[in-house]
Computed example of a mutant assay.
Amino acid sequence: MQKTILGIFLLFLTAQFTFAQDVQQKKEIIELSKTKWLWMENKEADKLAELFDDKSVFVHMGGSWGKEREVNIIRSGGIWYKKADIHEVSVEIIDNTAILLNRITLLAEVGGNEVTNPFEVTEVYIKKADGWKLGSLSFTKLMGPADR
């Protein structure tokens, strides 16, 4: 009987620890995403280059490309992410992968023209030995306001 009670107690503690760890990882990813938006706003291409995995992919309304082109576009000002107003955030953790969804209104300058668009942004992060790396950033334009 004591072994059964001890086993249930240990199972409960393990579940509590796993839940707390999951909550902490989700908070960490949300903060990393917010920091990424600030780096994009401030055109901090070198910090972004460290965050982006070498095999990362980026999907925009005008096409898709890899890390080098994304960093160069940000560095040159080809796309200037001036302000991302974040309306909703959710994160799911699957093993060493985090999938973050942001519902945003993005104020950007693209090719010298200022534009505002509502997007659902999908960010995929992979946990590596040296921390979380962004593996994918994908913009899906919404048909209505982003804050619905």
Rank of each mutant, 00 (worst) to 15 (best):
E70H: 10
D53N: 06
N102R: 13
L134V: 00
V71M: 02
A146M: 08
G63F: 01
E114T: 07
P118Q: 00
V121W: 15
F52G: 05
V121K: 15
T140C: 13
H87T: 05
A146I: 08
K83P: 07
K55C: 00
S138L: 00
I79N: 07
N113D: 09
I79Q: 06
K141Y: 00
D130S: 12
K67P: 09
K128V: 11
S90W: 04
V110K: 03
L48E: 04
G63V: 06
T97N: 06
I99D: 12
H87S: 01
K133Q: 05
T122Y: 06
E50L: 15
I99N: 14
S56C: 01
L48N: 05
F58C: 05
G78D: 00
G112C: 04
M61Y: 11
T97W: 04
L142M: 10
L100K: 14
A98I: 03
P145S: 00
Y81H: 14
L137R: 10
I94D: 11
E123K: 07
D46V: 01
L48C: 04
T116E: 07
E123S: 09
V59R: 10
M61I: 13
K128T: 15
L134R: 02
I104N: 13
G66Q: 01
S138D: 03
I79K: 07
T105F: 08
R69N: 07
G78W: 05
A49L: 08
V91F: 01
K82S: 03
N102H: 15
F52Q: 06
E114F: 05
V89D: 04
I93T: 09
L106P: 10
E109I: 03
G135Y: 01
E123L: 10
W80P: 02
I126H: 15
I93A: 02
F139N: 11
E120Y: 14
K133A: 03
G62L: 02
I126G: 15
G135V: 03
A49W: 04
R69K: 13
L106S: 13
M61Q: 14
E44K: 14
H87V: 08
L51M: 11
V57T: 13
I74Y: 03
E109S: 02
V71H: 00
V71F: 01
L51G: 13
I86Q: 00
V89Q: 12
K141G: 02
S64K: 09
